[in-house]
Design a protein around this nucleic acid. Structure first.
Lengths: 161, 161
DNA sequence: CTCGGTGCAAAGCTTTTGCATCCGC
DNA sequence: GCGGATGCAAAAGCTTTGCACCGAG
């Protein structure tokens, strides 16, 4: 096991590795080194990322995986619920690790594209109620609030719109 | 004024036309026939649509506008709040007319891609509370619930996943 | 050894952009 | 007539696909 500054992330990786392995075995998929490397890279990062930044950061660490493999593996990780996929109003999928993190929703600044997280238990209530009313089995939800953060919270404001 | 079967839609169009005109004048933009034709087409339709289906349906009525103009005009209509833009989990922007329709959120069937609408006043409460807590001026939100509708509600189930 | 997975590049799709032409003002 | 808007096509950007090769089981 490699030495890392973020031991917390390492612990999480050991846990999710087991979950991923169980998932791969259940679906009779192969346990390739690329799949584990991608999972490890994701759990060593914080915050949201897109496919290309993940691809580039792995390449920079001299661990090369093709974009196709990154896409393929992310689909698997989303399926086994170790990663969440989001669309923050752009045609660019954003991802984040999800295991061991509290369910949350997002607040997106239209000025600087910053993404904050918040929790409100009422979202779950709405989900339950609506699912019952419409006879839907709700699997997941996505609540994004879009707006402008005030100057003090938005230091990097004059960026690309 | 053309004779149409859906006079309700026509009435709405007359109202939104005025709003759009005021918006164009305020922003000193030109009142081109293409812009009004696109607005009229949108308000004559029901439900959600993507850019291409709007483009094609206008072409089929022998009113040709370029895709670039459709994109440009949709941006304006979103800006003046006559049209809402959505992302239902795919990399394809979906739109719907919004004037005179109640604020609502969406329930998306992962099996048949059907989109239902629902209202829950608590969403507004969450929006207000979170905006205050994080010192955000929230402009709009997007709440999508994803799941499976039960068979009886999902007749067209065996479609493209 | 087999067949699923990977890597690479090409293709696919939606959206954006550049530029000549057109027309609202 | 001026300058913004349109139309067309090319380009851009993200994602998917096809195919040869590799390696997990």
């Amino acid at each position: 096991m490699l030495l890392k500054t973020d031991t917390m992330a390492d612990n999480k990786y050991e846990e999710v590795k087991k979950i991923f392995t169980a998932f791969l075995e259940k679906k009779e998929l192969r346990k390739t080194p690329e799949r584990y490397a991608i999972l490890e890279e994701i759990y060593s990062k914080n915050g949201h990322f897109d496919v290309d930044s993940l691809y580039v950061s792995m390449k920079n660490k001299n661990y090369h995986v093709s974009r196709a493999t990154v896409y393929n593996t992310l689909d698997l990780l989303v399926e086994c619920d170790l990663v969440n996929k989001h669309q923050f109003g752009k045609n660019l999928a954003m991802y984040e690790k999800s295991y061991g993190f509290r369910q949350h929703d997002h607040l997106i600044c239209l000025e600087c594209n910053k993404v904050l997280e918040f929790c409100d238990p009422r979202v779950q209530n709405i989900q339950n109620l609506v699912g019952e009313m419409y006879q839907f089995q709700i699997v997941h939800h996505s609540l994004n609030l879009y707006g402008q953060c005030l100057k003090e919270n938005c230091p990097d404001r004059p960026k690309k719109s």
